[in-house]
Amino acid sequence: MKLVIIEDRINRLEQFATFDLKREKNVAVVSGQGFTKLTTEIEKKQMGFLDEFASIACHQSAISVDVRDNLKTYCKDKNIGLIFFSGGITSSIFVDNPFPYLYINSKDFYSDHLKLFLEDFESGAKPNLLKLQFGQNWKLATLLSLRNDINSALQKESLIDEIGEEIDENERIKRFEDLKVTAFLKNELSDEESKAILDKGDYDPVSKDEVHKILNSIKRAIIQLI
């Protein structure tokens, strides 16, 4: 598993990177003539050479809109991570759906977070772009998002009784899969109170009480992280 970095400004890579990227065996850096050749092929939608990579990072300002769109389509089809970095980005944005996509400042990209991110490539785990965005705080980011989703769903349900609000059935948490608890989260939340619930199958029903227990478990995990 490898990360490909498509970078026209090779000097910036050398200057910003806080470690020797060239010695990382799981990283392929494409620059110079290779950069021109590769972007030309992407423009023509000849993307086969990207198949060996588990994530793609590209300097956004150096490529055309067509190249950007083709990369997005490719990553969406393959469900692999896409990172666009640029010096003009003031604040990073990450979305996991429909495919992992991170928009990040160049200097933040070439930081220690990248080293942490590359650990997944070494271990063979699915690359986690949150590690690139938040570094050691990636777990916190994951847990906060999950807590918000669950809390919102529970609060919305309570609005039905309290003010007679109608809510979309899809917003309710009825089955285990609605909790969106990933394998990583199962590992993080494995306390006594939630253990039995976390062992459920995706389509097993979960009660409101069980959802509250999971929520409490997430809250405890968050507190331990700060």
Binding site: S91, S92, I93, F94, V95, D96, N97, L130, Q133, F134, N137, L140, A141, L144, S145, R147, N148
Partner: peptide
């Protein structure tokens, strides 16, 4: 406080 899918971005504060 969060205005994106990724809570910790805290775009509400921004």
């Amino acid at each position: 406080v969060a205005l994106s899918a990724n809570y910790l971005e805290y775009f509400g504060l921004r």
